[in-house]
């Protein structure tokens, strides 16, 4: 596959650069050939599970919360619509790092309960993501032609049925590329949770970098970790798009054989 080749090319060029100027690069620190290198690699990779875990939780929660939020607007009620606008604007204005810090350090004081870094990070990033997801849904519904609403109305479908069977299936399909984009952003934003101590990949890299004094190699490894994760996620999103036929107006998809 194309992205595998890309990955290989990037990896190889970095290694070649390492060989070419061995006075600057010290790959021994994560060399699979030595025991120490293997232990270090294992340590760095132990963060991947947390990164994937928090991303999955945030993606699921933001998809659901975003829809709940959007349904305020969908209700057609002027006041709920106003409330929707307010919530979206507030959630979007807070930098995700700030909201992570606020939820982790601030919320316990207010609510009297302690959340671990995973829960705090998930809550903060899910709320942030939900605002963007809600706007993605709104854009999708707005892109549906007026005739579809009118046809559903003329058939005496109730408002709920009109949305459920006619409008939303089409709107969600159109929203998929934008949603995929958002998911990739959320995967990368999970790195922010390292500041409150979740042992995901960035935290692990930081910890190793200060004990081994080899930031160049360790952060290069971190770059590669994200590259693999993001490319895998992108491939997954595109696979879902194809499954749901959301790419039917994509000129590149039309050229693909066997469709």
């Amino acid at each position: 596959m194309r992205w595998m080749k890309l990955l290989l090319a990037v990896g190889l060029s970095l290694l070649l650069a390492g060989c070419a100027s061995s006075d600057k690069w010290g790959w021994y620190v994560i060399s699979p050939a030595t025991k120490r290198g293997r232990i270090n690699i294992e340590f760095l990779l132990s963060g991947v599970g947390w990164t994937i875990g928090i991303t999955i939780c945030c993606v699921i929660l933001s998809v659901v919360l975003g829809f709940v939020l959007y349904s305020l607007h969908l209700s057609g009620n002027r006041w709920l619509s106003f409330l929707y606008r307010g919530i979206v604007e507030v959630l979007r204005s807070i930098p995700p790092l700030v909201s992570i810090l606020w939820v982790y350090y601030g919320l316990p004081v207010l609510a009297g309960v302690d959340f671990n870094p995973f829960v705090s990070g998930t809550v903060a990033l899910s709320l942030y993501g939900a605002a963007f997801m809600a706007e993605i849904y709104r854009g999708g519904v707005q892109s549906i032609e007026r005739g579809q609403f009118e046809a559903a109305d003329s058939l005496a479908l109730s408002t709920i049925d009109k949305l459920r069977y006619v409008i939303l299936p089409q709107a969600l399909r159109r929203s998929l590329p934008a949603m995929g984009n958002q998911f990739v952003i959320m995967l990368k934003m999970s790195s922010l949770v390292s500041v409150i101590g979740l042992s995901e990949v960035v935290r692990r890299a930081n910890e190793l970098a200060v004990t081994e004094y080899r930031p160049l190699e360790i952060y290069t490894f971190l770059v590669l970790e994200y590259l693999v994760l993001v490319l895998a996620l992108s491939a997954l999103v595109r696979w879902v798009e194809r499954k749901l036929g959301a790419d039917e107006h994509d000129p590149a998809a039309a050229a693909r054989p066997g469709q």
């Binding site: 005739g147 046809a151 006619v166 089409q170």
Partner: peptide, 9 residues
């Protein structure tokens, strides 16, 4: 309708 407005999905 003029534009049919069938549900394409």
């Amino acid at each position: 309708f003029q534009q049919f407005n069938l549900f394409p999905h």
